[in-house]
């Protein structure tokens, strides 16, 4: 009955408003790009209940992992643009094209909300023979290939940070790959690696406990969570060119979703991200709230993609040049 009614309305050409009025008429599916317990998962599961309250509907969340998140992205892109499937993802899709991981990225989606971004920090094992960024660079230059950097595969945060460093201060290190910053930080505590570029939130509790020491915050301003650690630009202003930079989390729908449904979702997630409990949680984890949508979000994504892809291109990590995909040089 309902389906016929909707079909009839479609025929009359007033489907958009009718659909939006009744939206959500059924459960919405949220596809999370990363595994249960990871940062993206935690952020999405924490913000969504607040958004549900505003939306008046239920979002069923599911982790679809694999292919650096490309499997989840393709699944949402292959679905209908009706607002009933949300992609809950991180920054990685913006690198798919240049890394040869897929033909689609966020340009095939409409951002509902870019919720927050992480702040990169370089940490080292407590007994490493250097305490600051310049000391670290000097030590590495004196001992080429001896220092072991943790990495999470090409395109991951450590590879981007390492590319930034190499662009300004060419160094020779041994990159030991891990499948995520969690295992890499564990290895750092166990002494299997010496240095790890990570997200502040993942390292902060270990820094407080003295199990690793901060070398530099890769940002333009100090962070309230670690007031004594200097941002990199104070010792090495040349990095200002790339900063602020960081991984981010966002909710997306397939491009072509009716505008009023997009607006409804944006309003819901905007309210969800403003929730005081959620903001406190994000603060605790050392994430910087962004809560942006619309043009602001589009601009942010474009700038992020341009900075990062060209950085990786210059570092020789990419499989295809960003120019091939009309990604402008920063």
């Amino acid at each position: 009955m309902k389906r016929t009614a909707i079909a009839a309305l479609l025929g009359l050409g007033i489907a958009g408003s009718a659909m939006a009025q009744s939206y959500p008429a059924k459960e919405i599916q949220g596809v999370i790009q990363w595994g249960a317990g990871g940062s993206t998962d935690v952020v999405m599961r924490a913000v969504t209940p607040h958004a549900e309250a505003v939306l008046g509907g239920k979002v069923v969340m599911q982790n679809v992992t694999g292919g650096v998140g490309a499997i989840a992205l393709n699944r949402v892109a292959d679905g209908a643009a009706d607002g009933y499937t949300l992609l809950m993802g991180a920054e990685n899709p913006l690198l798919y094209k240049v890394m040869g991981l897929g033909q689609k990225d966020y340009s095939d989606f409409t951002p509902i909300n870019i919720i927050a971004r992480g702040i990169p920090i370089i940490v080292a094992r407590p007994d490493a023979p250097f305490n600051t960024f310049p000391e670290m660079i000097a030590y590495i230059k004196a001992n080429p290939r001896a220092v072991k950097f943790g990495s999470t595969g090409p395109g991951g945060l450590p590879s981007v940070i390492t590319a930034m460093i190499n662009a300004k201060q060419p160094i020779q290190v041994t990159a030991v790959p891990y499948d995520g910053d969690g295992p890499a930080l564990t290895a750092l505590m166990g002494g299997a690696i010496d240095v790890m570029p990570a997200v502040l939130g993942a390292a902060i509790e270990n820094i407080r406990a003295g199990r690793m020491k901060p070398i530099a915050i890769m940002d333009v301003a100090p962070n309230a969570a670690l007031p004594n650690v200097k941002p990199i630009v104070e010792t090495n202003p040349e990095f200002r060119q790339y900063l602020p930079w960081g991984p981010f989390f966002g909710v997306f729908v397939k491009k072509g979703t009716p505008a009023d449904i997009v607006a409804k979702l944006q309003a819901a997630y905007n309210a969800g991200a403003k929730n005081a409990d959620f903001q406190k949680l994000m603060d605790n984890r050392g994430f910087l709230m962004m809560n942006i949508a619309g043009k602001e979000a589009d601009d942010f994504l474009a700038k992020w993609q341009s900075t990062t892809t060209w950085l990786l291109q210059d570092a020789g990590v990419t499989k295809a040049s960003p120019a091939q995909f009309n990604i402008p040089k920063p």
Partner: peptide, 12 residues
């Protein structure tokens, strides 16, 4: 993850 969501900071 659940501890985080409930406002705790798992760590050392």
């Amino acid at each position: 993850g659940a501890l985080f969501i409930h406002g705790l900071n798992p760590g050392p």
